[in-house]
Amino acid sequence: MADAENRDRGQLRLSEDECKGCGLCVEACAFKVISLSEGLNHYGYRTAMYAGAGCSGCGICFLACPEPGAITVLRLRGTAAAHGRGRVISIPGAA
């Protein structure tokens, strides 16, 4: 990843366990940074995957996704206020 100035405004965490592969997030994302996996998950769904870069943090994928916890949208600190109520997470490992 590049330095702070070039960092994406947003980051996505997609839960393979909760995703049912409906593809609505793929359709919703203007930046086309989400796609469905080639392989199937444990339940037989092709689940949503983040490209790893290019997320604007707009959060529309979150609203388009029907599952309560399948998508978590992160936004670079200091950018527009969001619905996360200011919670900060420290997530071990990469998304």
């Binding site: 990843m1 702070a4 960092r7 947003g10 980051q11 790893g52 943090g57 959060g59 979150f62 609203l63 309560p68 916890g69 998508i71 978590t72 949208v73 992160l74 936004r75 670079l76 600190r77 969001a82 619905h83 996360g84 109520r85 200011g86 919670r87 900060v88 997470i89 420290s90 997530i91 071990p92 490992g93 990469a94 998304a95």
Partner: peptide, 20 residues
């Protein structure tokens, strides 16, 4: 992507507290 990078991010959208 490292933990350091993520530590600069706040949660914008996540599963609501009103859900179990």
């Amino acid at each position: 992507m490292s933990n350091e990078v993520l530590a600069d991010y706040d949660i914008a959208q996540c599963k609501a507290d009103a859900f179990y």
